[in-house]
Simulated scan of single mutants.
Amino acid sequence: MNAKPTSSPNDSGQPSDDVRKPRSDGEQSRERLLHAATRLFGQQGFSKTSTREIAQAAGTNVAAISYYFGDKAGLYQACFSFMCAEPGAAIAAFDQPHFTLRESMQGYYRQMLAPLMEKPEEADVMLRLFYREMLEPTGLWAMEVENNIKPEHRALVALICRHLGVAEASDDIHRLAYSIPALCIQFLISKDVINAITPHLLSTPQAISAWSDQLVDFAEALVYAQKLKLQRKA
């Protein structure tokens, strides 16, 4: 359990202002710890990153980690919660019954690329943390798969089935549902290569938006190709 700042009631028996409104310096200290820890955990892994190192990078003391997060494991888990969307939030962005296929794909890639468009430095840090967790698993990546990625995959499969007019997902449709996010994941993990060869393709939010538009085109084409394949079989 993450430890949270608390304070006592005042003489009237009512909660003090510190309870109703978190102290701004406390919130800033907590966020500095989260940002510093996410960066260091992503660079070095959980086991090789010390609480003292995190506190020093955040400009605070080690006791603040215990105060806000309980221990290093609590801080590590909080880093994932801080970076990840709430379960279901991503699904709502693309799985709406009134959406056309294109509108669904626009919502899908928009939520995947939002961190890169809004806060590119934080997006890089988040990706490094995910990569590190996959290389040196602590169990949090398995939780992320179970709580977020698996439901998103199921929602995407159901959406594809709906647009293809089929009642049950075949292996081909599951493969298609894995390929659609893979287009974007490949883009994200290849950013260093893209920057080395064609840096202008990543230089502005408008450039990232152009990527998003083209990914939508690609995803639509994949779904229509699957539809044509089903028609030929029929």
Score class of each variant (00 low, 15 high):
5 P>Q: 05
7 S>A: 15
7 S>N: 11
9 P>R: 14
11 D>Q: 12
17 D>Q: 12
19 V>G: 00
24 S>Y: 03
25 D>F: 11
28 Q>M: 10
29 S>N: 13
44 Q>L: 06
47 S>P: 00
49 T>A: 04
50 S>N: 04
51 T>G: 15
54 I>L: 04
55 A>E: 07
58 A>F: 07
66 S>G: 12
67 Y>Q: 06
70 G>N: 02
78 A>L: 03
83 M>C: 12
88 G>D: 02
93 A>Y: 06
100 T>H: 08
110 R>E: 10
118 E>T: 15
121 E>W: 03
124 D>W: 07
126 M>E: 05
128 R>K: 13
131 Y>N: 12
134 M>W: 03
138 T>R: 11
141 W>R: 04
148 N>V: 15
150 K>L: 14
152 E>I: 07
164 L>Q: 04
165 G>C: 08
167 A>H: 11
170 S>Q: 06
171 D>Y: 03
174 H>E: 13
176 L>G: 03
178 Y>I: 09
180 I>K: 07
184 C>F: 09
184 C>H: 05
190 S>V: 01
191 K>V: 04
191 K>R: 15
194 I>Q: 00
196 A>K: 04
202 L>Q: 05
206 Q>F: 02
208 I>M: 12
214 Q>K: 10
216 V>K: 01
221 A>E: 13
234 A>Q: 15
234 A>M: 13
